[in-house]
Design a protein around this nucleic acid. Sequence first.
DNA 1: CCGCATCCTTATAGATACTG
DNA 2: CAGTATCTATAAGGATGCGG
Lengths: 115, 115
Amino acid sequence: MEHLLDKPTQLAMIQPVTDAIYAINGKWKLPILICLSFEKMRFGQIANDIPNITDRMLSKELRELEANRLVKRTIFDSGPVKIEYSLTDHGRSLHDVIIALHNWGVEHRKVIFKH
Amino acid sequence: MEHLLDKPTQLAMIQPVTDAIYAINGKWKLPILICLSFEKMRFGQIANDIPNITDRMLSKELRELEANRLVKRTIFDSGPVKIEYSLTDHGRSLHDVIIALHNWGVEHRKVIFKH
DNA sequence: CCGCATCCTTATAGATACTG
DNA sequence: CAGTATCTATAAGGATGCGG
């Protein structure tokens, strides 16, 4: 990215990047998405996998992720009602972002903690 | 990422991703980093390139980016004092993250607006 | 022109209790 | 189990003005 792009192109990147950040912002959205990237899960399972998240936050974040079409909520009311959360195709398309964040996060930790 | 990783591996990813998110969180950090990825800049230039940012926020975010070693602040006091901000190597290493966010952001906009 | 300090408002997150 | 309601604490962001 160093001098590969001209200035207008560079500035034009800001909006999509901002859009992306807004869709995954907050403390819990990525953890939730990572959980769901493995398998579809029920509310309580997600809460178990993510330390310290409260029901209120999990509920709130799930609704926002649904509004942004990253997560799908499915109700099975055969017998006892059961609700499952899963990624949409669009949610799965975050894969590259998550990998990039993960790789950078590992390096970042080294930089911050080595001195 | 779909069923390629086992559960413990998946959960272990959460921390580095959270670290990364924290380093670039807030409304303005990515826009600032994108600006600086083109060239080193002075305070006022950055403020001009990023619509609506206030001096207070720019100042605050720059200090946080410096603390996280993403941005370097250089003072030239030859004659009139001049201050330049530039990316560190570590800041430049965010390139892949920014590209991934950008690519996904473009698709996200399509998904959201096509209804 | 560059940037910080103060004050103020809004947004986000947490604790706790409670419901169908 | 899968949440909601209420209330409080903290963080993020904005307006404005000052000083080098």
